[in-house]
């Protein structure tokens, strides 16, 4: 079986979980942190712990949407020598070991330099599902929209509490897979209280026709996961997992992931 045959799309995963009355938990990890092989092992650990999909981050030198935890991990990955072509190796290895969708999260310049078409073809060929683009808005994304259509990749744009209704409609129309609702105005990190803004944003996205919405930024506990899944299709957890991996390695990550997964099971 080639990796491609195994690809279950993110939409299928989200729909399936919705039918069973729970919701999705998407886990973020930076590729190459603490090194390439351990980041692959960490992603497989997330899958084994019951996480619904992986968001694999491509480390970038100037990550303006990221708070200190992810900044530090991305810098460590680059310092350890991660190269862009190893991203496909990482996705491929995780897809060999698990059935769950693997998405990439990338700032735009690395993909632009690799060549947008070429990047999409290679990602699709190793079984990647799509790309989340934190600093690319649909307005400037013509090349990505064309290339993702050609390669069948999911295209996940962000929506923010500050976005107008008109923009939310445009973002919804241009996204495929799901819309990434930013829970709060700010960067990635761990927050003790989830913003009420998240619930309102999801409602506004539903109004303009968004079918699948996942909420991210600041989610770190199973209670928060459960709360988000009351109104959204998925919860995205990043910094809390990266912090666990940083502090206690893969075993620490497993423990944290399993605790978060309880948030969906009890949901």
């Amino acid at each position: 079986m080639t990796p491609k045959d195994k690809v279950e799309s993110v939409s299928e995963t989200l729909d399936k979980l919705r039918e069973t009355g729970t919701g999705a938990l998407i886990g973020y990890l930076p590729i190459g942190f603490p090194n390439l092989s351990q980041s692959i092992e960490a992603a497989i650990t997330l899958a084994e712990s019951g996480i619904s999909a992986i968001e694999f981050g491509i480390p970038y030198s100037d990550p303006v949407m990221d708070g200190p935890i992810i900044q530090r991990a991305a810098q460590a990955s680059l310092d350890a020598g991660l190269k862009l072509k190893q991203v496909f190796e990482a996705v491929s290895a995780v897809k060999q070991a698990t059935e769950i969708p693997v998405l990439l999260m990338s700032y735009w310049n690395p993909i632009l330099q690799f060549g947008v078409e070429r990047f999409c073809e290679q990602l699709a060929s190793v079984g990647g599902s799509g790309i989340i683009t934190p600093d690319l808005i649909p307005d400037d994304a013509a090349a990505w929209i064309a290339a993702s259509n050609n390669s069948g990749l999911d295209r996940i744009f962000l929506a923010a509490p500050s976005s107008t209704a008109q923009r939310l409609a445009m973002i919804t129309k241009q996204s495929r897979g799901f819309v990434y609702a930013v829970s709060t105005m700010g960067t990635t990190g761990v927050r003790s209280e989830l913003d009420q803004a998240a619930r309102e944003l999801v409602a506004r996205l539903r109004e303009v026709g968004a079918e699948r919405i996942c909420v991210g930024l600041g989610i770190s506990t199973r209670e928060q996961v459960r709360e988000v899944l009351n109104y959204a299709d998925g919860a995205i957890v990043g910094s809390a997992l990266v912090a666990a991996l940083e502090a206690d390695g893969v075993s620490g990550l497993r423990e944290r992931a399993m605790s978060l997964v309880d948030g969906i099971r009890l949901g």
């Binding site: 949407m65 808005i137 400037d140 929506a159 500050s162 976005s163 973002i171």
Partner: peptide, 12 residues
Amino acid sequence: GGRFVPESLVEA
């Protein structure tokens, strides 16, 4: 040129 920014900044 253009605008390669997080959606959160577009309104501003």
